[in-house]
């Protein structure tokens, strides 16, 4: 008998860091030194705030490079980085550094943003709290998935995997313990960054319904 699944949720208090950049070189220097919570914030904020508009999580770095500096090729490169391929914030940070270093090593003159449009580095302090749901079996789990908040879904899929260093999302880890390896593998295989949060909820529920 495996342990029940305890649902949690999370909220971020956003911190404005004393760091801003006006060109790609300064952005690179910032990415090298800001705390992990800053890299996480700038690559995940869009998912929570604009989930109803677009499934694509234009990370803040890519958005600024494309829309403010108008360096569209570099913006696309940074924007299309597959966050799901990185097991930790440390490696994701290195992924950005690699692309930006290649760009700055080419010696092209760095475009400077208009005054007032600098990239402002932010970070977040994350508070994790229990949600009022516990699932003891797959049926209960599926029913609870329909009613948890978007923040709770976000926590178990995104935050748990990359920020808390659990390697996989919480749902797949529990489902494996429950002996539902096929469902677990299908959920692990999803690229959650290409769904809106509601779309992701529906997809996970449909996987459970199909395989059960």
């Amino acid at each position: 008998m495996s342990e029940p699944f305890y649902f949690y949720t999370q909220f971020n208090l956003v911190e404005i860091l004393n760091k801003k950049s006006k060109n790609v070189m300064e952005l690179l220097e910032g990415i090298k030194v800001v705390p992990d919570s800053s890299i996480f914030y700038h690559t995940h904020k869009f998912l929570e705030q604009h989930h109803y508009l677009l499934p694509e999580p234009a990370n803040d770095f890519a958005y600024w490079i494309s829309d403010v500096l108008e360096e569209n090729t570099l913006g696309e490169e940074i924007g299309s980085i597959d966050i799901i391929d990185f097991p930790s914030i440390k490696e994701l940070r290195n992924g950005f550094i690699k692309i930006l270093k290649e760009r700055t090593n080419k010696g092209k003159p760095a475009r400077i943003c208009p005054e007032g449009s600098e990239f402002h580095f932010m970070a977040c302090k994350t508070f994790i709290l229990p949600a009022p749901y516990v699932a003891h079996d797959l049926e209960e789990f599926k029913e609870i998935l329909k009613k948890i908040t978007k923040s709770s879904l976000y926590f178990h899929i995104f935050e748990a995997r990359i920020r808390l260093g659990k390697v996989d999302n919480d749902f797949s880890r529990w489902l494996r313990d429950l002996g539902k390896d096929k469902i677990a593998a299908e959920i692990s295989r999803l690229d959650p960054y290409t769904y809106t949060l509601e779309g992701l909820r529906e997809k996970i529920i449909s996987i459970i319904c199909k395989e059960n």
Partner: peptide, 20 residues
């Protein structure tokens, strides 16, 4: 209201990730 509650709590919890 949620942000203000988190703000008040942040004065007493110093780490980046806080389990309440």
């Amino acid at each position: 209201i949620r942000d203000y509650l988190l703000l008040f709590l942040s004065l007493y919890y110093k780490k980046d990730i806080v389990y309440l």
